[in-house]
Design a protein around this nucleic acid. Structure first.
Lengths: 112, 112
DNA sequence: CAGATATAGTACGACTGACGTAGTACGATT
DNA sequence: AATCGTACTACGTCAGTCGTACTATATCTG
């Protein structure tokens, strides 16, 4: 069974997170479940990877956070929600273009 | 102009090098030119990245090296040639499968 | 009602691959 | 004679990922 290694996925974690935040603001635990679902169980992001990505992207201005107190919207635990900024949307768009280019290039070095 | 970042290409450099060595033994400078050519100028591997990949992959048993003295085959300078081992061929095959999986997964998080 | 499981994180350090910078040395070209 | 191309090597830095561990509340199950 082939698995996706961290060196290979490196550089796409941010893109996956932003893809989800393009749809709606969300929080860590939820995002990790969505990544698993969207990838049909083929990729599960590590907790530490996810939360360090939040820190990094917030620092870079790609996302913003706010804390939702328990019970505020029917949930039981305090959560930190993240939403994508305009700069984040730009960055996401750029990452998508970069992916198309990378795909094209790498494909030339692959044998089936 | 979009460029391929090092975080995105990380994990594919080895694959590209092995792809070339699957065809014939070669050496650093030649391989770097081939990568540029095959990718149609869209990707140029850094020297240090290339040579550190050689060290790593030789240590892992994926490639073997031998030194060709100057003049031995019509060339002017001493070169270190690398050839792919059986383990390297296995590794390359595995990397190709991993790529197909990665492509499938990442594509789900991309918007055009 | 107690214990397990799910939820929702934080902290810290280690590792690895990529890269910047620099330097060596020889051959070919202008 | 000087510059450019060839063919590397050495060394240190950086960023992103991951292993391990820990906290703490909520919800489910027997």
């Amino acid at each position: 069974m082939v698995e996706i290694s961290s060196d290979v996925i490196r550089g796409y974690n941010d893109t996956m997170i932003l893809y989800i935040l393009m749809r709606a603001p969300s929080y860590g635990y939820e995002i990790s479940k969505q990544i698993k679902n969207i990838s049909e169980g083929k990729y599960v992001i590590k907790e530490t990877t996810l939360y360090s990505a939040f820190t990094r992207m917030e620092k870079n201005g790609y996302i913003e956070s706010y804390v939702a107190e328990p019970g505020a919207d029917g949930n039981g635990k305090k959560r930190t929600y993240y939403s994508i900024t305009d700069a984040g949307k730009e960055y996401f768009k750029m990452k998508c273009e970069e992916w198309e280019l990378t795909k094209e290039v790498v494909q030339k070095f692959i044998e089936k």
